[in-house]
């Protein structure tokens, strides 16, 4: 009888220790994230002004603002969205609504999972070989957007499929029973019901794309341009590449310019995707089916 309480006490002690140890891991993660966020806000916010956001860089990037950089990023993301959304949503529909349970579908899924893990610089090489050189788009918005389309596709596909799968089968059946064709049932009933999930998932994917540097480094981002891009075949400036340039390529940049650029990038990319993620989890809980 006397052994048991001791063993139980030791088990409790080990539990307490491990709780502290694993808890410390969580604390470390949260602490790191807070540090990243805090540092960027603290050092970046002072550099933010209307002038900074709406003027061109000057004096070899050591003065002025980042207006063309922001515009270039927005154009790139918009073009990527135009390309990736139809393709990704259709592929998601294929997986959720049409794909038979067979080897081919299994291979499609494997490919998508694998695409998500291909290093972004490899996408850059692919874009350089195919879009820049083979298709003669040159280093341009279009070549970069096509490259980012490949990179973002898995995210859009998987979030579309997931959103569609959350729509109850009953709704599809009801539409079919009313004499709707498969496509009409999907287009008029299932897709609208899944729209919030698809939209937020796509925003997540696109905001990640907006923060990518390596693929655009080799497919079209410019160090500096005196004018804004005027067609999809123009080169462009971009926030992540600009930050890289300021941080490593140009000596003696005033810190508020570099930190300000980092702040705008994080605010634009991370905050947007975080809001999208939060909204998605709210939506998931709210819908009652």
């Amino acid at each position: 009888m006397s052994v048991r309480p001791t063993r139980a006490r030791r088990a409790r002690l080990v539990e307490a220790i491990m709780k502290v140890v694993t808890g410390a891991c969580v604390a470390l993660v949260i602490g790191t994230a807070l540090f990243v966020l805090g540092k960027i806000v603290a050092a970046g916010l002072p550099g933010i002004s209307l002038d900074f956001l709406f003027s061109k860089p000057g004096m070899g990037m050591r003065a002025g603002g980042i207006f063309p950089v922001i515009v270039g990023t927005l154009m790139l993301v918009a073009l990527t969205a135009v390309l990736v959304l139809p393709l990704g949503i259709m592929a998601g529909i294929y997986l959720a609504e049409y794909a038979p349970r067979n080897l081919l579908t299994r291979i499609v899924r494997l490919s998508i999972a694998n695409m998500a893990g291909v290093p972004s610089i490899v996408y850059g090489l692919f874009g350089l070989a195919v879009f820049v050189l083979l298709m003669h788009f040159g280093k341009s918005l279009l070549a970069s957007a096509l490259t980012l389309t490949c990179l973002t596709l898995p995210v859009v596909i998987t979030s579309t499929e997931e959103a569609l799968r959350q729509v109850p089968t009953d709704l599809r059946q009801a539409a079919l029973a009313l004499g709707a064709t498969r496509w009409r049932a999907i287009y008029k009933v299932v897709l609208p019901a899944a729209a919030p999930g698809i939209v937020t998932g796509s925003i997540l994917g696109l905001s990640r794309a907006a923060g990518e540097t390596a693929p655009i480094l080799v497919t079209g981002a410019a160090f500096f341009l005196p004018t804004l891009p005027n067609s999809v075949f123009s080169q462009y400036m971009s926030l992540p590449y600009h930050l890289y340039v300021l941080a490593t390529q140009v000596p003696n940049v005033p810190p508020e310019i570099t930190w300000g650029t980092a702040f705008v990038l994080v605010a634009g990319v991370s905050v947007v995707s975080m809001i999208a993620a939060a909204w998605r989890s709210v939506q998931r809980r709210k819908v009652k089916w």
Partner: peptide
């Protein structure tokens, strides 16, 4: 199915 309609077990109005 335009001639033969169906009502399901659980109410399933479209959103």
């Amino acid at each position: 199915r335009m001639r033969v309609g169906q009502v399901f077990q659980r109410p399933n109005p479209f959103p």
